[in-house]
Simulated scan of single mutants.
Amino acid sequence: MTTLGPRALNRALLERQLLLHRHQLTAAEAITRLVGMQAQAPAPPYVGLWTRLTGFRHEELAGLLTGREAVRVALLRATVHLVTAEDCLDLRPLVQPVLDRQVRGVARFAKAIAGLAPDELAAAGREALGGEPLTTKELGAALAARWPERDPDGLANAARGQLPLVQVPPRGIWGVGGLTRYATAESWLGRPLGTGATVDDLVLRYLRGYGPASVKDVQMWSGLTRLREVVDRLRPGLRVLRGEDGRELFDLPDAPLPDPDCEAPVRFLPEFDNILLAHDDRSRMLDERRRSAIFTRNGIIRATFLVDGFVAGTWRVDGKRDTATLVLEPFGRLSRASRKALEQEGAGLLEFMTPEASDRTVRVEPLGS
């Protein structure tokens, strides 16, 4: 078997994640190719698309959300993802076991629905959401009116796991606040959930967007378990490679494997970017010693920047009135060329994120600060 080191895997991932160069794609095309974008907060998908696409504008993604061509829905790993309407309908049924496991894993949610049939809870949730979209609190109150002895918040969160609920606008619109309100995917999109997509299809799409990868990598990305038999079923049509540690890596026969020494431009990744969450072995992107600086105890995955294709530090934007500062915290010493490239790319990021600011600055923090 061909053995691939971290640089080869890095360049393959960057190419498939639209990060070796910016692409002339629509936002919908990019979201489809990425098999969705993790989206707990509204801003990260906008930054993730800006860093991947030529000429991306906030209005393009906002239009997809208000036009019901894209939605925010609990999906992979039971986390909120931005996906196209088609992928919401097709993929959401495939990851239902992941949502079920999440509900069972939270004692308060599991206690709230103990003894309730899943179909009964789902039917009650659909009835409650039959009018206008509801907040979690409102959904809980509606369900508690039927089961007053049960915890309303636990009922609502269990229903969110049982039903395909999308977060409706203005949630997810750049610069617009407001409470998170939910509607069923079927009512919001005007179509039923799909029945044609399979887990095999999901694995193949993952490999096209994130491969080459191991079975554990696919499971980490999706949240699904016991995928060995799926990959074994697909094996005759896959390219089989090997990592330097001896792990089997699977890939599509026609998927690109760029030269490991090809140039990779500096890039800014938003919080929660899937490129850092899609593999069990993250060595193709990240020095494991830096993990604690990015993955915080409260579940936040910090925004990062790439130098030579690998995570080289974190970033944030500090602002006050009409000023904005992009603060870079590198993990190690930056070369003069890398620093200049980060400052130039960072200036574009600041302009995108803070168009109202009249005074923008990029600041690189000294090591150890």
Rank of each mutant, 00 (worst) to 15 (best):
G5C: 10
P6S: 13
A8Y: 07
L9W: 11
L9G: 12
R11N: 04
L13A: 15
L14R: 00
E15P: 06
E15F: 00
L19R: 03
H21K: 14
L25H: 02
A27H: 07
T32E: 15
V35L: 05
M37C: 03
A41D: 15
P45Q: 08
Y46V: 06
Y46D: 01
V47L: 15
G48L: 11
W50P: 06
T51V: 11
L61F: 06
G63D: 08
L64F: 00
G67R: 07
E69P: 02
A74Q: 14
A78Q: 14
V80N: 09
H81W: 12
L82C: 01
E86W: 01
R92I: 07
P93T: 10
L94H: 06
L94V: 01
V95R: 06
D100I: 02
R101L: 15
G105N: 07
G105C: 10
A107P: 05
F109G: 04
A114T: 06
A117K: 04
P118S: 08
A123S: 05
G131P: 02
G131C: 13
E138V: 10
L139Q: 05
A141R: 15
A144D: 04
W147H: 15
R150T: 04
D151K: 00
G154I: 07
L155G: 04
A158L: 10
A159W: 11
P164H: 09
V166S: 13
V168I: 10
P169M: 09
G175I: 07
V176E: 15
V176L: 15
G177S: 08
G178E: 13
L179V: 15
Y182G: 11
A183Q: 09
T184W: 09
S187G: 07
L193C: 07
T195K: 08
A197Q: 05
T198H: 11
V199T: 03
V199S: 00
D200L: 08
R205C: 02
Y206M: 14
L207Y: 11
G209V: 02
G209E: 00
Y210H: 15
Y210T: 12
P212C: 10
P212M: 13
S214H: 03
D217W: 04
V218G: 08
W221Y: 09
D232C: 02
R233S: 05
P236W: 04
R239I: 06
R242F: 09
D245T: 12
G246M: 00
E248H: 01
E248D: 12
D251P: 08
D251H: 05
L252M: 12
L252R: 12
A255Y: 12
P256G: 00
D259R: 15
P260S: 04
D261K: 12
A264K: 06
A264T: 13
V266Q: 08
L269Q: 02
N274P: 14
L276S: 09
L276V: 13
L277R: 11
R282N: 09
S283E: 09
S283H: 04
R290K: 14
A293W: 10
A293L: 10
A293G: 10
G299P: 06
I300C: 01
R302K: 12
T304L: 05
F305S: 02
L306V: 00
V307M: 02
V311F: 09
A312N: 06
R316V: 07
R316E: 05
K320Y: 12
V327I: 14
E329F: 11
E329D: 13
F331M: 10
F331L: 07
R333C: 03
E345N: 05
G348D: 01
T354V: 11
P355N: 15
A357Y: 00
R363G: 06
R363F: 01
